[in-house]
Write a protein that binds this DNA or RNA. Sequence first.
RNA 1: GCCCCAGUGGCGAAAUGGUAGACGCGGCAGACUCAAAAUCUGUUGCCCGAAAGGGCGUGCUGGUUCGAGUCCGGCCUGGGGCACCA
Length: 865
Amino acid sequence: MSRYNVRETEAKWQAVWDERRSFAVQADPSRPKTYVLEMFPYPSGRIHMGHVRNYTIGDVIARYKRAKGFNVLHPMGWDAFGLPAENAALERGVHPGKWTYENIAAMRGQLQSMGLAIDWSREIATCRPEYYRFEQKMFLDFLKAGLAYRKESWVNWDPVDNTVLANEQVIDGRGWRTGALVEKRQLSQWFLKITHFADELLGALATLDRWPEKVRIMQENWIGKSQGCRFFFKLSGGHEELEVFTTRPDTLFGASFVAISPNHPLAAKLAEGNAELGEFIAECNRMGTSEAALEQAEKKGFRTPVTAEHPFVPGWELPVYVANFVLMEYGTGAIFGCPAHDQRDLDFARKYDLPVKPVVVPDGEDPASFDVGNEAYTGPGTLRNSRFLDGLSVEEGKKAAIGKIEELGRGTGTTMFRLRDWGVSRQRYWGCPIPVIHCEACGVVPVPEAQLPVTLPEDVTFDAPGNPLERHPTWKHVDCPSCGKAARRETDTFDTFIESSWYFLRFADPRNTEVAFDKDAVKYWLPVDNYIGGIEHAVLHLLYSRFWTRALAHCGYLDLAEPFAGLFTQGMVTHATFQDAEGKWIFPTDVDLASGKAVKRADGSPVTVGPVIKMSKSKKNVVDPEGILNSYGADAARLFMMSDSPPDRDLEWTEAGIDGAWRYINRLWRLVTEPGITLPAAGTPAPAEFGADATAIRRAAHKAAHGVAEDIEQYRFNSAVAKLRIFSNALGDALSKLAAKQGNSQDVGADEAWAVREALEILSQIVQPVMPHLAQEMWVSLGHQDLLVERPWPAADAGLLVEDTATVAVQVNGKLRATLALPRDAAEDVAKAAALADPAVRKAMDGKPPRKVIVVPNRIVNVVV
RNA sequence: GCCCCAGUGGCGAAAUGGUAGACGCGGCAGACUCAAAAUCUGUUGCCCGAAAGGGCGUGCUGGUUCGAGUCCGGCCUGGGGCACCA
């Protein structure tokens, strides 16, 4: 028996695809396009199983769509700027650029060995000046359009990476990458006006019907729109008026205090002559980010000597507190407190003994006796004790109160967003230089476009903390483009989320040296039809990209609102964890499970098997894809990735699983190379008639072609693989029967032999998206010379998709009692009669007459007695 | 606390409101083999039964329906997201 030589075969076809440029594509408006994109990788040096899963999903879709006649754009690139390169420079003395390009070369090789149907001629790396020069241009255009600005601001400072983090990059008060406690620092920073598009970004989520609901909700929460009203309190003691924001102007008559953030300018001012207040503010800042989460945040306040006058009631003075639960970053940094209808205000009021006056009474409650106790009432109801608002509903009350405030000139109805502008300055070397120059005389001067790109200097050192660009002896010293005097280059670089905010556009026209991309190319290829990646980018990358696309449209680059029409978020690849007797994590490859219990391969000492969790280097529960690709091959790895678990769920990597995939590949190979009967030559015309056995084989094949296509369209890859197996199992069974016939020197009918060839050819074609190398080898082995990737998806014969007979279940009172084989679409009374005649059914009916008989054609008959 | 998602055999999982457990992994039995590996065949939700057959089964609980894993209400458990957002 000839063995399937996986290494040779896979390398052979990869070389052929490469040589014939099989996957290179051109825009062609006469053909329907589809754009399949997986989130591009950071070039860390080696691919991991998450990549294998990600790129397999995309590749199956790309190959399938291609067979379906689409012009498929399926590119690959590298998210090549970022801190790990600088860390490598620090640790190993290798230049970040060298390290990055070497990693790219290594990972490209690994990805190519997966047999991906990628147009490698479109490959890009974001760290190349040919790429980021256009990013610099875009930034300058944003600057002109008022979408980029500079401001002094409190920033999140990561003390480990020595850089600023965006709000989105701070998780539980810690840096998203380093996990270090984030500090507050004040720096002058570049910001992009994502808030300009807040409403649009929110509203357009509704149009993204091919995105997971979950991601849309996450973005919705992140944008955090709320309707309300801003208004001013007059303050005692000659202080400036205090602006507050509220979503509940209807509850103004229930107000019992006003509170400002410890970071509010008024708090600082009041603290000047008040050491006690100063100490309170300092305490709040210490609590700030770090312990807030742990300490369950007790409400604390400091009563200032200032009072605020109620906007509707002259002479009604409310005490002004500095309170730890009021955030400077949201709204105006000041609130009014209505304890009866806000839980935080209520906690605060109970602690400081402030009045609690309900002004919203739930319908059906007695207004005279309604009391909130220790749980604020936030539901609907009728306003009471509220003068001109009395009797109104909450919604009516909001409108009326805003109307009154506006009438009095005290404030205005407004919409508030949680979303804040995107701070993009980073104090790092390995990023895109921000193309501006600081001149003492002229201020911030954009680098003239003719001088773009501003490139990074090569000769940098990483021996001291902070930004190497800042320390470079000459790089930052330039003449002002405006006045010609000595000036200073901006030494900050962009947040690397910027590069990934437009790479999907560059893929449409990656070699353009004049502009970032040709408008028509983008018009043809975009939006991305299938964007595939991890859920961890649900907010950051995806929101930034949506913003960036809008900002580009605003500047006339393109005519597109949403870059990603379809989004799919894949699950993680998990693996069991192992610890040795000392509790140290150990690699799966060092564990021997053969004896039924886990022991160390090296010395046989016992190993504890831990929970199945996401593969991570720190827990060592990783399996290196390269080893798998070398021993089992790309097809087996791809098959395993697609089998069993639905792609949006976690997938547990197991030895048994990859073994199973490998066995199946060999089974398919044997099916084609040793069918056991003599097949007609390739291209033999179909016989005029098919007998029952031949028809059964054809049915199985055509059903599989149809079903697998449907499943791939819906990302139901595990189900598609199941259908492949059902088909190949059926074909295998049919073949062993036919082989036995031939072995007994009986004739195998020409119709049967022809049907088997057809089935094997269809099989080759429909396993192709998942197992492309094997498929091509099967195809050749069936006597063809051409490439399967050039062949269309096999068209299913509609007549073969439906059976002549239907298996109809018969229930008596909802319980299954029999199944009947009836002609397809048998008349209802025929089905009914057949059901009532069945002995098992009669027995279950126990002689009682049927009260009612429900007949669902081709499915079920339910007899009610 | 709020918002999502998920709970089905020993395991991964399938099932337009219509035969629950397809397909695979693992197990068991057998064939081939001196033996093993590989491969092939059969079997495999639970309980009663020698069998035929019967009963019970999709986290719990109530409902809608001729019929519910699927739809609706309440609850439990697990996972994820947001979290003093005024």
